[in-house]
């Protein structure tokens, strides 16, 4: 499994806008780059990312992204969400060659 680094404030006040930062290990091979033998390396990209927020009342996707070859290797995405309630954030990355990885982070909202 690819290593991921998730940064979410563990505690937040209700209604506070928090920053969420996710970093995941992935080559993001563009499909345009020649390898050492001169042949084009096959594309291997993370294509989609989403963040689902389960705050105890609702469980919905609060942010999502479609990524292309121009996103750097080991992609970093940083976005914001309103701390609506205590619960979990579930992150999902999906991509070429059946790549799929999910990570969770807990948040306590007071």
């Amino acid at each position: 499994m690819a290593r991921a680094l998730i940064t979410v404030p563990p505690n937040a006040k209700r209604g506070e806008v928090i920053e969420v930062r996710v970093l995941i290990q992935h080559p993001m091979e563009t499909g345009y780059r020649p390898g050492s033998d001169g042949r084009i390396l096959p594309r291997d990209l993370i294509r989609k990312f989403s963040c689902r927020y389960d705050d105890g009342k609702s469980n919905e996707i609060v942010f999502s992204a479609e990524l292309y070859a121009a996103i750097a290797a080991n992609p970093l995405i940083s976005f914001h969400t309103v701390a609506t309630g205590s619960g979990t954030l579930t992150f999902l990355w999906e991509g070429d060659n059946g790549f799929m990885q999910s990570e969770m982070a807990a948040i306590k909202v007071s």
Binding site: R3, L5, R21, L23, I24, Q25, N74, L76
Partner: peptide, 13 residues
Amino acid sequence: DTQNPAMLWVKDG
């Protein structure tokens, strides 16, 4: 560290 991609390797280590 939340942006430093090298920290992915540190985590593995």
